[in-house]
């Protein structure tokens, strides 16, 4: 290793803890911004996908157009989408980041929610009708709870992929931890990159674990399955 490289490694290690301490306010702000963007995008995605799912369940012919559209959105490169929306909403508007992020969740959320409702066994529906449940009550007290495991699977996948996509929004000046990564890259200074990258991984894993716990809490019957004897 050349002397210059040795000096560079000494002054620019993978992580320099003094920087972390000095910039802890900036790091905390980045985490909060990252989380805020993720939660807003997920929340918006869930509201829109609920409407789309309702449309699909009510009018089956809408399955193809809705699936095609959400799939198309999903295939768009994220950098391109952020860049396209920046002039529309302005660089500094949070919605410039949230709207595309939410749009990316739709395919996963709609597909899983629809699958959840379709997974309700016909005899269960039949029994609900036969007991005298109105269609609305059947929907709320039977079909929705039974769709929850599928919906939660969709939300977990969407959450993890949104945490990843938020970093990309740094190109339009948003992006939470992504901004740390990009500034580190620009300055060839490894510490912010390391911090930004590892924190976004930790954030994704934590969010996934929290959602997994929520799913388990919402579906107690799923934990207690066993092979029944005769």
């Amino acid at each position: 290793m050349s002397p210059a490289a040795l000096v560079a490694e000494a002054t620019n290690p993978i992580i320099r803890w003094e920087w972390v301490v000095e910039e802890s306010d900036q790091i905390r702000a980045a985490i909060i911004e990252h989380l805020t963007l993720t939660v807003l995008a997920l929340a918006l995605g869930m509201v829109v996908s609920a409407i789309l799912t309702a449309l699909i369940l009510r009018f089956r012919w809408m399955t193809t157009p809705i699936t095609a559209t959400t799939s198309l959105i999903y295939t768009l490169p994220s950098v391109a989408l952020f860049a396209l929306l920046a002039p529309v909403f302005g660089n500094l508007s949070r919605w410039t980041a949230v709207l595309p992020l939410a749009a990316y969740t739709l395919l996963i959320l709609v597909t899983n929610t629809v699958a959840g409702f379709l997974s309700v066994p016909q005899p269960v529906r039949d029994a609900a009708d036969g007991m005298g449940m109105s269609p609305l009550r059947r929907m709320w007290s039977v079909e929705l709870p039974l769709a929850v495991p599928y919906m939660m699977t969709g939300i977990r996948i969407a959450a993890v992929s949104t945490v990843g996509l938020v970093t990309v929004a740094a190109i339009i000046g948003q992006g939470g931890l992504g901004r740390l990564i990009f500034s580190g890259l620009r300055r060839a200074f490894w510490t912010p990159m390391t911090v930004g990258a590892s924190l976004s991984i930790i954030l994704a894993l934590t969010l996934d674990a929290v959602l997994l716990l929520i799913a388990a809490w919402l579906t107690p019957w799923q934990r207690r399955k066993r092979t029944p004897e005769s």
Partner: peptide, 9 residues
Amino acid sequence: IQQVGLFPH
């Protein structure tokens, strides 16, 4: 009914 149709949840 034959398949009983109990509410699993």
